[in-house]
C-alpha cells in the first residue's frame, strides 16, 4: 500500500486524521510481528530509501515505518541521557518532526540514517534538557547540489554497518564505557582520565567519511 500526501499543502484538523490513518493502517498487525517483518525482509540501508521517499514525495507511509522503528530508540536515548519519561516522549515527537522538516538536508553519502537521527536527538537533548545553545560547525560548501553517487552512498552505509558490528563485538566492559560516555554518565574530565575507553579499537574502524570529505575538498 502506498499512501502519499503533500502534508504541507494541507491545512486544518484533517491533517491529524489523515496522518493517524496512515499510521494505523500499518498498525493493524501486531506491532512486534510487523517490526520483525520490516527488519527481516529489507536490507539495512532501507531507511535511506524511506528518507528519500519522505524527501521527494512527503510519503507518510515511509514516515510511519521510520517512526515505528526509530522513535522508541530516540526516546530510550533521551531517557538514558537523563530525561524524565514525559519529557523524553515530547522531545521524541519533536525530533521526529524535525526529521520530516529536515529530510531534504539528509545526504546518505555522508551519514547513515541512524547517525543523522542521533545528531538531531542529541541536539534536542542539549536544547531541552540542558538548556544550552548548540554551536554547530559551519556548513561546508559542497558545490552545486548533485544527487549523491550511488557508490558513495553504498560505501557509507556499509561502513556504518561494519561499525555497528564492530561495536557489538567489543568486550562488554569496553562497550559499557562507550555507552556511559555517550549517555552522559561520564563527564568530560572522566572521559579524559578513563584509560579503558577503547579508542584505538574504534579509531581503526573510524576513517568513516574522511576519504569522502577529502575527495570533496580536493
Amino acid at each position: 500500500m502506498q499512501m502519499k500526501f503533500n502534508l504541507v499543502q494541507q491545512t486544518g484538523a484533517s491533517n491529524h486524521q489523515v496522518a493517524y490513518a496512515a499510521f494505523n493502517s500499518n498498525a493493524i498487525y501486531d506491532q512486534k510481528a510487523n517490526f520483525r517483518a520490516v527488519t527481516q525482509t529489507t536490507p539495512k540501508n532501507t531507511w535511506v530509501d524511506h528518507l528519500k521517499r519522505i524527501q521527494t514525495d512527503q510519503d507518510q507511509q515511509a514516515f510511519a515505518e521510520l517512526f515505528r522503528y526509530f522513535a522508541p530508540r530516540v526516546k530510550a536515548f533521551l531517557m538514558k541521557s537523563g530525561a524524565a519519561p514525559g519529557m523524553a516522549e515530547d522531545c521524541t515527537q519533536e525530533v521526529m518532526a524535525t526529521l520530516w522538516h529536515k529530510a531534504h538536508l539528509f545526504d546518505p553519502s555522508r551519514a547513515s540514517v541512524s547517525t543523522w537521527i542521533f545528531t538531531i536527538a542529541r541536539n534536542k537533548n542539549i536544547d531541552a534538557l540542558r538548556k544550552q545553545r548548540r554551536p554547530e560547525p559551519e556548513e561546508l560548501t559542497w558545490g552545486p547540489e548533485a544527487e549523491p553517487e550511488a557508490s558513495d552512498v553504498l560505501a557509507m552505509q556499509q561502513q556504518s554497518d561494519q561499525l555497528s558490528q564492530a561495536m557489538k563485538a567489543l568486550p562488554g566492559q569496553q562497550r559499557e564505557l562507550i555507552e556511559k560516555a555517550y549517555f552522559g554518565d561520564l563527564s568530560h574530565g572522566q572521559i579524559a582520565t578513563e584509560t579503558g575507553l577503547p579508542l584505538g579499537t574504534i579509531k581503526s574502524r573510524l576513517r568513516l567519511g574522511l576519504s569522502k570529505l577529502r575527495q570533496t575538498m580536493e
Binding site: I117, S160, M167, E179
Partner: peptide
Amino acid sequence: DSIGGALMQAQPTEDLGDAAFAKTMALIA
C-alpha cells in the same frame, strides 16, 4: 557521531504513548 548512531540503534527501546504519532504529525503540520 556514527558511534552515537550505532549505540542509539542497538539499545533496548522505550515504548511511546498511543497518541505519539498523531502528535508528531500535528507538529509537522
